[in-house]
């Protein structure tokens, strides 16, 4: 019991540190790829601290509700993951974060955040379906949705789920809000929708959402590590490789439209996943 409580406190804190650090690496690496110096690794933390110190301001009270709910859900999902719970429950809880992000963004009459909310919904649809298919694959291989059963597998899941891993990479790109799928709000405020779903969140609310975003990425990378859960080095290397690949892709790819994302990107990813699932059963 005490152990669980300690874990429940330690996991979100560690995940925040890790997520911030990853964001720092991302910014530094991207800068180097673009022949810039780039900020220090601690810059994301400094940014968030600065945001938290700013004045609270909303155009609709829901914008104060949503970030807290979003962050809470993201942290809770991670704790469940650390406790080796039911993957479906983890995904359902994780989903709540996205729901509240969109609800807060839609609560403002701003055309930018409204339009981006629609895109965010399509992005959520793309990611969620693929994650649930991963859960299905986990069930078909281990006979259970509980993560605790995974360590008993003799060989890495990746051998049996190559296509699903490709689909997961697509979902990771969408979730990290990276080109070519930084449609509903990217890291730069110069896209046609300003900052998309984040346009109307300011100050501490934006800070909370930034932290929630870090936690989401950590959860995705943790799910990525499930694909090679048989050895500890691989559990670290595989997500790291995926993370670096997304950053590389971000720097070489131009942005695509959401129609492309939904039609070709998600369509292909879903078909690949379905194929992969069907041969698992046989």
């Amino acid at each position: 019991m005490m152990q669980t409580a300690a874990l429940a406190l330690a996991v979100p804190c560690a995940a925040i540190l890790l997520g911030g650090l990853l964001s720092g690496i991302d910014r530094r690496l991207t800068a180097r790829l673009q022949s810039r110096q780039g900020p220090p690794l601690s810059q994301p933390f400094l940014d968030v601290i600065k945001l938290m110190a700013k004045e609270r301001m909303v155009t609709n009270p829901w914008q104060a509700f949503s970030p807290v709910a979003s962050l809470g859900a993201a942290a809770f999902a991670l704790v469940f993951f650390a406790l080796q719970g039911d993957l479906l429950v983890i995904l359902f809880v994780h989903m709540v974060g996205g729901v509240f992000l969109v609800l807060g963004a839609m609560a403002s009459p701003s055309p930018y955040s409204q339009t981006a909310s629609q895109r965010e919904l399509w992005q959520m649809l793309s990611c969620e379906t693929l994650l649930f298919l991963i859960a299905g694959a986990l069930y078909l291989t281990t006979g259970s949705f509980r993560l605790s059963e995974l360590s008993a597998l003799p060989e890495p899941l990746l051998y049996r789920l190559p296509l699903l891993f490709a689909a997961f990479f697509f979902a990771l790109t969408v979730k990290m809000r990276k080109s070519p799928f930084d449609l509903a709000g990217c890291h730069h405020a110069h896209q046609e929708l300003v900052r998309g779903v984040f346009t109307e969140y300011v100050g501490p609310y934006l800070g909370l959402l930034e932290i929630a975003h870090w936690l989401d990425i950590v959860l995705y990378l943790a799910i990525c590590s499930l694909f090679w859960a048989t050895s500890t080095p691989a559990m670290i290397l595989l997500p790291l490789a995926a993370f670096l690949a997304v950053i590389m892709l971000d720097n070489v790819a131009a942005r695509l439209t959401w129609r492309w994302m939904l039609g070709w990107g998600w369509g292909a990813a879903f078909v690949l996943s379905a194929l992969n699932l069907s041969w698992l059963k046989g």
């Binding site: 004045e55 609270r56 301001m57 909303v58 155009t59 009270p61 829901w62 914008q63 104060a64 509700f65 949503s66 970030p67 807290v68 709910a69 809470g72 859900a73 809770f76 403002s108 009459p109 701003s110 930018y112 955040s113 300003v194 346009t199 109307e200 300011v202």
Partner: peptide, 25 residues
């Protein structure tokens, strides 16, 4: 946990209600 997060979020709302109001971008 959902109840806890909901209460925290609601207290955030009550703080935001007294603060300065913004306008949509």
């Amino acid at each position: 946990v959902a109840a806890l997060i909901g209460l925290l979020a609601l207290s955030g709302v009550s703080k935001a209600m007294v603060g300065r109001k913004g306008t949509a971008y």
